Computed example of a mutant assay.
Amino acid sequence: MPELRPSVGRLVHYVSHGTPVRGDGSQAHPPACRSAVVTEVDADDPGRVGLAVLNPTGQFFHPLTAGGAVHAEAETRLGGSWHWPEVVT
Rank of each mutant, 00 (worst) to 15 (best):
P31F: 02
S26D: 06
S16Y: 02
P56M: 00
G68N: 03
P20C: 07
P46D: 13
G25Q: 08
T39D: 07
G67L: 00
N55H: 10
G23S: 09
T57H: 11
T65N: 12
L11V: 10
H62P: 02
V15A: 06
L11I: 14
H71S: 04
D24L: 01
V12H: 02
A69Q: 01
P56S: 08
S16T: 15
R10Q: 15
A66F: 01
S16M: 03
S16L: 02
A43N: 08
H29R: 12
V70D: 03
T19P: 05
G47S: 11
S26C: 01
H13C: 09
R10C: 11
A52M: 08
H13W: 08
A66W: 05
Q59E: 12
A66S: 15
G58W: 02
G18I: 07
V15R: 15
T57A: 12
G25I: 11
G23D: 10
A52I: 06
R10M: 15
V38W: 07
P31R: 05
V15D: 03
N55D: 15
P46Q: 09
S16D: 09
H13E: 13
A72W: 07
V15Y: 03
L54K: 06
N55A: 11
V12N: 00
D44G: 14
P31N: 07
S35N: 07
V41S: 07
Q27P: 03
P20N: 05
Q59S: 10
L64V: 08
H17P: 02
N55R: 13
V49D: 13
F61Y: 11
D45V: 10
V8D: 05
Y14C: 00
F61H: 13
A36T: 06
P20T: 07
G67K: 03
V53G: 00
F60I: 04
H62F: 09
V12P: 02
P31K: 04
P20W: 01
P30T: 05
D44W: 08
R34K: 09
P31S: 09
S35F: 10
T39V: 14
G25F: 00
L11R: 15
G67N: 07
F60T: 12
P30H: 08
V15H: 05
G67E: 03
L11D: 08
H17L: 12
P30D: 06
A32K: 15
Q27R: 15
H29M: 06
H62N: 12
R48I: 10
A32E: 15
E40F: 00
E40T: 14
V38D: 00
D44T: 15
P56Y: 00
V12Q: 01
G18M: 07
C33S: 11
A72S: 15
R22V: 05
L11G: 04
L64R: 07
H29N: 08
L51D: 03
G68H: 01
T19W: 15
A28I: 10
T65V: 12
V21M: 15
G47C: 05
P46F: 10
A28E: 10
G68M: 04
G50P: 14
V8E: 13
V15W: 04
Q27G: 04
G50Q: 13
R34S: 03
P31C: 04
P30Y: 03
A43C: 06
Q59Y: 06
G67I: 01
D24I: 00
P46V: 12
A72T: 01
